[in-house]
């Protein structure tokens, strides 16, 4: 199957690959998997004053899964948490011209950013109480 140019670009030059300290109070970590194919994705964000200042990912999966997570980290940097929560998979799929059989990769990336934000939110609530 032919990958779109955008996918190949992110696959060959992935943005923001790496890890943040998951125990840091300002860091949210989302780990998700695609049971059908065995892809796993870790997406992390650092939040300061409600703004995402850094984002990192590690994805073990196909080119579309790597590109989807790479794109999301690029997008969320500089976004407010509430804005990042609104990212949905169809935006990712559209940006990367994903074919129908690869839509689940964009769903995975959406799930990962949402999970990372939830993790960060849980840490903030734990701090308050």
């Amino acid at each position: 199957m032919a990958y779109s140019e955008r996918v190949i670009d992110h696959y060959e030059n992935p943005r923001n690959v790496g890890s943040l300290d998951k125990d840091d109070e300002e860091v949210g970590t989302g780990i998700v998997g695609a049971p059908a194919c065995g892809d796993v994705m870790k997406l992390q964000i650092r939040v300061e004053d409600g703004v995402i200042t850094d984002a990192r990912f590690k994805t073990y999966g196909c080119g579309s899964a790597i590109a989807s997570s790479s794109l999301v980290t690029e997008w969320v940097k500089g976004m407010r948490v509430e804005q990042a929560l609104e990212i949905n998979n169809s935006q990712i799929a559209q940006e990367l011209s994903l074919p129908p059989v690869k839509i689940h990769c964009s769903v995975l990336a959406e799930d990962a950013i949402k999970a990372a934000i939830r993790d960060w939110q849980a840490k903030q609530q734990a701090q308050v109480s």
Binding site: I31, V32, P35, V40, K58, Y60
Partner: peptide
């Protein structure tokens, strides 16, 4: 089924 976080972390 969705796998547990601990399993996914182990896989990463």
């Amino acid at each position: 089924p969705t796998m547990s976080q601990s399993f996914l972390i182990e896989m990463i």
